[in-house]
């Protein structure tokens, strides 16, 4: 069986005053219908990787790769017009903060309905029914009321569930979740991740979970990539994390506080080489 996603030697470049900077430096990865976690600190290029898959890097940023194929489709040669048939319908993305990623002047119902209507021709009542069902599936108990609300009228946790509903309603094959919980209260983080996890597994989708939180990724993913300064430094199965080889991964693991902490100081990274400025 062919892979869902194949990336070979992906580079994302941004020009700066001091010449171009590669924020992603020739990474390669492949993904089946599984849950892949990408971990790294901010600026490590993990979000840019996610956006490059959807070809959402806007100029002046540039994307280069030897291969970028999704389900046998070569994304590199696809024109913008054809990408639209893939975005949303086949690959979707949940972004960090629903406060910013939901349109403030469109009602929740309209935004979800738009995701349906972009890819399918359905009657208004069918669209409505589908929207309500989707909201139910992200555990929103009173979808009729939520439909008419504006994003500023809902809480962060509910906003993110709405976002997930909107992104999953066209039933894509791959979901990229870019820091889906880091803007949320700790109390609702697990709930949101459980929802993602359930839907992804039940529909047999692929998932790329991008996060800076190693533990979180380890508990929700099958496989983990650790990125640093635009490169993949470690790749391992989630349950083999403790056996990680690369000093950076070890450092990440070591700098996490434990509940039974007895160290006086938490170790801090030595950033002598490979650090970004």
């Amino acid at each position: 069986m062919s892979n869902l996603l194949d990336i070979d030697n992906l580079t994302v470049t941004f020009p700066t005053n001091n010449g171009p900077i590669d924020v992603v430096k020739g990474i390669s990865l492949s993904l089946g219908r599984e849950r892949l976690g990408i971990v790294g600190e901010s600026g490590s290029g993990k979000s840019m990787t996610g956006r490059a898959i959807l070809k959402l890097i806007r100029s002046p940023g540039r994307v280069k790769a030897d291969r970028l194929s999704f389900d046998g489709i070569d994304l590199l040669t696809r024109r913008e017009r054809d990408m639209r048939a893939i975005r949303g319908a086949r690959i979707s993305m949940v972004m960090q903060d629903p406060k910013f990623s939901l349109n403030p002047v469109m009602s929740v119902g309209d935004q979800i309905a738009e995701a349906i209507k972009t890819h399918q021709r359905l009657s208004p009542s069918q669209v409505r029914a589908k929207t309500l069902a989707m909201l139910k599936s992200v555990r929103i108990e009173d979808p009729e009321r939520v439909l008419g609300l504006y994003p500023h009228e809902v809480s962060g946790g509910m906003g993110q569930r709405i976002m997930i509903a909107m992104m999953l309603v066209p039933e894509p094959d791959l979901l990229i979740a870019d820091e889906p919980t880091s803007a949320l209260d700790v109390s609702v983080q697990a709930q949101v991740l459980d929802i993602i996890d359930n839907l992804v597994t039940s529909k047999g989708m692929g998932l790329i979970l991008i996060s800076h939180d190693l533990n979180l990724v380890a508990s929700y993913c099958d496989r983990i990539l650790v990125m640093r300064a635009g490169e993949i430094v470690e790749e391992c199965a989630a349950n083999k994390l403790h056996a990680a080889q690369h000093p950076y991964t070890k450092g990440l693991l070591a700098s996490m506080p434990r509940i039974d902490e007895d160290r006086e100081w938490l170790p801090v990274f030595e950033r002598t080489s490979g650090s970004q400025t």
């Binding site: 959807l54 959402l56 639209r84 048939a85 893939i86 975005r87 949303g88 319908a89 979707s92 993305m93 972004m95 960090q96 903060d97 910013f100 990623s101 939901l102 349109n103 403030p104 738009e114 995701a115 972009t118 890819h119 976002m163 909107m166 992104m167 066209p170």
Partner: peptide, 11 residues
């Protein structure tokens, strides 16, 4: 960000 969201949806 919500403009990106719209693009992600394929609008």
């Amino acid at each position: 960000e919500y403009v990106t969201t719209a693009r992600v949806k394929g609008v």
